[in-house]
C-alpha cells in the first residue's frame, strides 16, 4: 500500500516540465521500437521479419511458441526451404516446407507445393479451393533462423488480453513515475 501511495504522490507532485520529459521519454521508447521493426523490415525484405509458430504441423522441428526469423530475397525458391505463405481467404500465414518446385523457362515464374513435416499429406487441402500451386506472390519469406519458446509471450498476450493490458499499464506507470 505504501509503495502505491508513494507512486501516486510522485505523480501528483510532478511539475509541467517534468511531465514533458516523461512524455518525451515515452515517445522515444515507442518510436525506437518502431524504428527497430521497420529497420528489420528493410534489412530482411520481408513484411513481417519475425513470426511466431502457432501450430504443431512442423513438429518436431518447430513447436508452438517458437520464433522464426524470415528473410525475403530475390533468390529463387527451392525445394526443402521453409517458407511462410498466405493463402487467399485465410487470415493467418502458414509456415511449411517446399516439396515441389516447377520453375518456368524465361519468365522465372514458379509453381510451388508445400507440406508440413508433421502432416501426412501435402497442403493442397489448405490452399484456396481449386488451387494446385503457390506462386511467388503468396510467399512472404523463408525461415533462416530459429529461437525457441520466446513466442509464448505473444501467444499468451493474444489469448489472454487482460494480461496484455495489465503489462502495458504497469510498464506505462513505471515509465511515468520513474525519477531519473
Amino acid at each position: 500500500m505504501g509503495w502505491i501511495g508513494e507512486q501516486i504522490d510522485s505523480v501528483k507532485s510532478m511539475q509541467f516540465r517534468q511531465l514533458l520529459t516523461q512524455a518525451v521519454s515515452l515517445g522515444m521508447i515507442v518510436t525506437s521500437a518502431l524504428i527497430i521493426w521497420k529497420g528489420l523490415m528493410c534489412i530482411t525484405g520481408s513484411e513481417s521479419p519475425v513470426v511466431v509458430v502457432l501450430s504443431g504441423s512442423m513438429e518436431p522441428g518447430f513447436k508452438r511458441g517458437d520464433i522464426l526469423f524470415l528473410h525475403m530475397s530475390k533468390e529463387p525458391i527451392r525445394a526443402g526451404e521453409i517458407v511462410v505463405f498466405n493463402v487467399d481467404g485465410r487470415e493467418i500465414p502458414i509456415v511449411h516446407r517446399v516439396i515441389k518446385v516447377h520453375e518456368r523457362e524465361g519468365s522465372g515464374e514458379v509453381d510451388v507445393l508445400t507440406k508440413g513435416d508433421n502432416n501426412f499429406g501435402d497442403d493442397r487441402l489448405l490452399y484456396a479451393e481449386g488451387q494446385m500451386w503457390l506462386q511467388r506472390h503468396h510467399i512472404m519469406g523463408r525461415a533462416v533462423g530459429f529461437l525457441p519458446y520466446v513466442g509464448w509471450v505473444t501467444i499468451i498476450m493474444t489469448e489472454q488480453p487482460i494480461i496484455k493490458y495489465l503489462l502495458i499499464g504497469a510498464l506505462g506507470l513505471l515509465v511515468i513515475t520513474s525519477k531519473e
Binding site: 518436431p60 529463387p76 525445394a79 526443402g80 516439396i99 516447377h102 520453375e103 513435416d117
Partner: peptide, 14 residues
C-alpha cells in the same frame, strides 16, 4: 522445354 527447373521431392525423413 517448358520448365527450366523441376524439383520433385520423392522421399524425406527426420
Amino acid at each position: 522445354p517448358k520448365n527450366i527447373l523441376n524439383q520433385v521431392s520423392l522421399w524425406d525423413g527426420i
